[in-house]
Design a protein around this nucleic acid. Structure first.
Lengths: 344, 344
DNA sequence: CTGAAAGCGCTAACAT
DNA sequence: ATGTTAGCGCTTTCAG
């Protein structure tokens, strides 16, 4: 039983002196095959450690049982949660996942999608890179009849199933909570304009202020979405003649920068200044004080995305309506915000 | 130019009234083909958006340009770094990655490896699940001539290339630093016995103590590797008649649990108690005080692993010696440890 | 009940 | 310079 040249059906057939087609049928328990032959074949297959060649199967059946995932970054708590959600369900449904990381590059996204198409994936899950403004590569996939689901970073230029988190509402809830607990000068450290998730969170922030009859003060809004910048911005803001009494940040890491700076300035949190982040990353539990934040339910987003894709795959190309699944975000209150001081 | 049935070489051939093999040659710029035909073919291919079928190519060439990755958990900063390192180099080398998440289950690991074999991956990268004690599934792959690289969670029962971080040395350095800065009763919150990375870190801890003529006190060693348990253990330990003056933990999350508890007990860090974690996760920068820790260089581990695999793939099965690449870990000193008080 | 033949998409000998 | 044939591993008619 030489190891080298992987065992094929033909090897089994030769060994038993029967036809390959008979072996094939025996292996798939085709009732047309005698019980005896079937047993002989299956036994030998086990002994020779025969494993069907998935490539040959794919070529014949035109089914690869493989799905493609295109994602900006793997090293990102939220995205890794999404991947886990996708993987788990894909696995249960018997699909393999080919994963492409774009590193936020449009070019790599295009190449990634093309490679997936060449690999004949049966469907594509994608979260757009920050650079992506042109969607021809995706249109191309769609034209070839490859079902696609976009999640988190989506575009309205394309008709596909979509899954997003309700960023707007999450931000609105967060800011509303700050106001209800007595904050009046709420600063927002926001992501780059044009990035939908950042825009939506900024809108949620602004609307919550307006709905509570507070003015939106441009001086309190900064474009700042990382730890280092947050350190600087926080000190600038706290130096204002009328400093903020709360920070709402576009993500958790930025919030931790704010907390760190406030701690250094010996400003009590949340007594003097409240802080709310966005994402519910692992790190939000370990800051001191623990960070209040908005959970994006990454795992569920992954599950919802792959489920939509599987549904469409099941439907065999029947014209299902496109679904935009909006996952509820959730306000997680920890210790960086005050307890509600106004009744509901 | 109907979208549906993906375009094949035969379609191009029919369209131009020439033979498929001629089209094939023309597309690969075979010099035996006239400049004219070559142009005609390539133009049409572009117009009809022809894309070679990777499956057919694989079947013919017996090369899939696909590698398999089996990993315990994607949602884990360290592992996601490793994946990123692998992805980036694999991409440059023109390989696709199929990823399998075992969720630390031995069964899923076995199935994962089998699926990868069925998909005819050209090589396998694997980090063992915590449950794995039997290696037949891997031996099987090896017997089929599939090159394999094990990283981080490896076993000496198998002859393969390996990449690990020098856990022992990292732990040794960490504890040595604690001692040099005056700590004498150093507690170790360790991972489960039997898990190599936990054992090595525990050994590094013990040896550093012994080499500095300090006794290894079993009462100061606890099996505790997560945030929640750390909260409980820390309080227990600090209640001892002779409480520890330092904690060395098996990972960063555990260390943050320690810090949180110490903060609640109003014990000054690092003046009274020092803390060192392990991993250099993102969260180690955001604790207060910022956590001293040992960096595992996950990205580099990923790169080293895929590089070994690519080397072996290049070597075409020539008998390269097996390499065990040990990546240097690095002691990262932040604010949870004291400045050195003894000269080097 | 078993086998021969054809074909999935592609390419490499081997003609012509 | 182009075409014909065969075959990668498998399954599925269709005959026997």
């Amino acid at each position: 039983m030489m190891a080298k040249g992987v065992v094929t059906i033909k090897d089994l057939a030769d060994e038993l002196g029967i036809a390959p087609s008979t072996v094939s049928k025996a292996l798939r328990n085709n009732p047309a095959i005698s019980e005896e032959t079937r047993k002989k074949v299956n036994d030998l297959a086990r002994r020779m450690n025969y494993k069907p060649n998935a490539i040959a199967l794919s070529l014949r059946s035109n089914r690869t049982k493989t799905l493609g995932l295109v994602i900006p970054e793997i090293v990102h708590h939220f995205f890794s949660l999404v991947i886990a959600g996708i993987e788990d369900l894909a696995y249960d449904a018997g699909y393999n996942m080919i994963i492409f990381q774009t590193n936020e590059s449009y070019n790599r996204e295009v190449i990634g999608v093309q490679t997936l198409l060449a690999s004949r994936v049966e469907g594509i899950l994608i979260s757009l890179s920050k650079e992506t403004r042109n969607y021809d590569h995706l249109r191309n996939a769609l034209d070839q009849g490859i079902p696609m689901v976009m999640f988190d970073r989506v575009t309205s230029d394309l008709e596909t199933d979509k899954v997003t988190v309700d960023d707007y509402h999450g931000a609105y809830m967060a800011v509303n909570h700050l106001i209800r607990t007595g904050c009046r000068r709420i600063s927002h450290l926001s992501g780059p304009p044009g990035l939908p998730i950042a825009d939506l969170r900024r809108m949620g922030y602004s609307d919550a202020l307006r709905d509570n009859n507070l003015e939106v003060n441009r001086d309190l809004i900064m474009y700042c979405d990382n730890f280092k910048q947050a350190r600087i911005r926080t000190k600038q803001l706290m130096n204002m003649t009328q400093p903020p009494d709360a920070f709402f940040t576009v993500n958790d890491l930025t919030a931790t920068g704010v907390i760190k700076s406030l701690l250094e300035l010996a400003i009590p949190i949340p007594q003097q200044v409240s802080v709310i982040g966005f994402s519910n990353d692992e790190l939000s539990q370990v800051t001191h004080p623990a960070l209040s934040t908005v959970d994006q339910h990454g795992y569920q987003i992954g599950q919802a995305s792959i489920q939509l894709l599987l549904d469409r795959l099941m439907a065999q190309g029947a014209a299902l309506p496109f679904i935009h699944h909006v996952i509820k975000s959730e306000l997680i209150l920890r210790d960086s915000t005050r307890i509600s001081i106004l009744s509901e």
